[in-house]
Design a protein around this nucleic acid. Structure first.
Lengths: 328, 328
DNA sequence: TATCAAAATGTAATCCATTACATATTTGAT
DNA sequence: ATCAAATATGTAATGGATTACATTTTGATA
């Protein structure tokens, strides 16, 4: 592979001039520029980003930390991140943490190693102090999951409010017994959605018992399916609606209802959260809360890049929307 | 951020020694090593990968080119790639090409720029000559989609055979009129699966007409749905089974059948291809061809890394499996 | 204790591009 | 034709690590 030296020699100029053609073409005579460009062409020269990065001490790379790439919710955010990052001349490093601290810290080391200029994390804050400490040294934006420490920036939606509204919608439809299928409460969204769920119940004077919440360990179709299977066998006839805090869980649960011949929505209403694409393909289609995932990813990148440039940024809370379909 | 110089000074040794502690600890006295490690600890030193990469002229980064990240099929492959790459100490750069040549060539430039040590592409070969040319200079492995040029390595399944077997399965079930919902024939898999489909029909002496194939432009749920909508309105009663070359399309088509109240499998059988997770959640569950996606990604990385090391590699064709479920 | 090979450590070149500063060339006014 | 100012180009330092080669230290042996 040819280097800038080779180009300089071939064009009969100095490396500085070649570099200028690349970076500040206006500082070079038309004639010289032509010569240099011809030489580049002939040698099929492409500047080594390794060299450039070292000199500029930047990598033009953004770290993206997600619990699991296979969850369509994160995926859509990543899409937003990818495209926006590209527009700004950044590439992304997608890393799955499986919500494990060790993994996460391996990846955060990429910041220390200067392999990434900043990070967007969608992980629940496992070790807050460490994150705060890290955020002091490096540009970091939290996306979806967050911690309200003032030194940590984030973009998210109001999960509590959304869950409150959705629960209220179910209550207004006449449901008195609603089960919440929640995911691990290490996730802030799980805690917030539970809070909103409770608030609505309280407002309707519905007494609440702990066993109306089913906690799953994983956010997978199977976990949702398993949850519903268990609920149906233990509490048949005792509830008429289910609120799953994630579409993936709702879809699994809905599948189980289909399998067992429970009619949706006549015998049982079910709602999800996120509005992933699949929710439009289920039978019946799933009522859910739409999160602007693509936009969230896109804005997260804008925020992060501002941070990298040293500009001040404000936290962002995006709007959500109830999508009422045939599952309720 | 401290550099190796800082560590050397603090520990009272030369940079070479510090580097040795990092790379060949055995070449350093226990005592010195301790001193150096203490200094690193105190300074919270992490070696700059930028500097290291430049010197070693490698980036320990793999380029992964996929048409669309939102297709669960590719996603699962990417999962396999990510985890295996990590095991080998590589990170991955996931890039969506949207099957556009311009995009693809921007990304391939990352190889020229030495930002990636090699690439795995899942894109249909748009410009074969260019790819061959590129593969001469850089380690490249084709995954799923491929071109049989001897200078290009690939890992895939036998799509033609799988489609042949699946079609034969439908024919044996007594179906005489089967519609193929195909995707764009720029994809090799689309051409191969069509070929297998034809071979089976021929074997059963079923005459074939071009309008038994519905070609979609996109591989999305909506495209599948649209396909079925169009088929139902134009050819109602004229076919009893549908073979979609991708689960995503099949799921969309199935949704339309559900919507229109066509009973599956009694009135219409439908099969897909890939075995993405969601096929287990549809109503009824989808019969499909299982591709070992995770494994495909994993092996693709092994192949690529061998190539990077300059070792010889053989092309790989993985086994597939018919998954018969309730949609047939 | 002197000697010498082996082991440990250090010096300095190297990877490739960028850029401050120095030098050369051009421009345009007189 | 002359000269200062403006413009174009070149020289060399720089970023942070690795490593070939040179030098020093160690420790076994005579």
């Amino acid at each position: 592979m040819p280097t800038i030296q080779d180009v300089a020699k071939k064009a009969g100029v100095s490396v500085a001039t070649v570099s200028r053609v690349l970076n500040t073409p206006s500082a070079v005579t038309e004639k010289t520029r032509q010569k240099v460009q011809d030489a580049m062409q002939e040698l099929d020269y492409a500047p080594s980003i390794l060299g450039r990065n070292l000199r500029n001490s930047e990598s033009r790379m953004l770290l993206v930390l997600i619990p699991k790439i296979s969850n369509p919710f994160y995926l859509r955010i990543v899409e937003g991140i990818e495209e926006t990052a590209l527009d700004h001349g950044y590439n992304i490093l997608v890393c799955q943490t499986h919500s494990k601290t060790e993994r996460e810290s391996v990846y955060f080391d990429l910041l220390k190693n200067r392999l990434a200029d900043g990070a967007i994390t969608m992980d629940p804050t496992i070790d807050k102090d460490k994150l705060v400490q890290l955020a002091r040294q490096f540009p970091i934006v939290q996306c979806s999951e967050y911690d309200k420490d003032k030194s940590l920036s984030y973009i998210t939606i109001d999960s509590e409010l959304a869950a409150y509204q959705m629960t209220k919608f179910l209550l207004k439809q006449g449901h008195k017994r609603i089960v919440l299928i929640n995911s691990d409460e290490k996730f802030l969204y799980a805690r917030e959605r539970k809070k909103g769920f409770h608030r609505a119940l309280k407002e309707f004077d519905i007494e609440f018992e702990d066993d109306w919440i089913y906690k799953t360990n994983d956010v997978t179709f199977e976990a949702g399916q398993q949850a519903m299977r268990s609920l149906l066998s233990h509490k048949t006839g005792k509830f008429t609606a289910v609120f799953a805090v994630s579409d993936v869980l709702a879809i699994g649960a809905l599948k189980e209802l289909n399998t067992q011949g429970v009619h949706v929505p006549d015998e049982m209403a079910i709602v999800g959260f996120d509005k992933i694409d699949f929710t439009n393909m289920t039978f019946p289609r799933l009522t859910t809360v739409a999160q602007p995932m693509y936009k969230m990813g896109s804005i997260a990148v804008d925020m992060l890049i501002k941070k990298i440039r040293g500009e001040e940024i404000e936290d962002v809370i995006l709007d959500h929307e109830l999508i009422i379909r045939e599952s309720t």
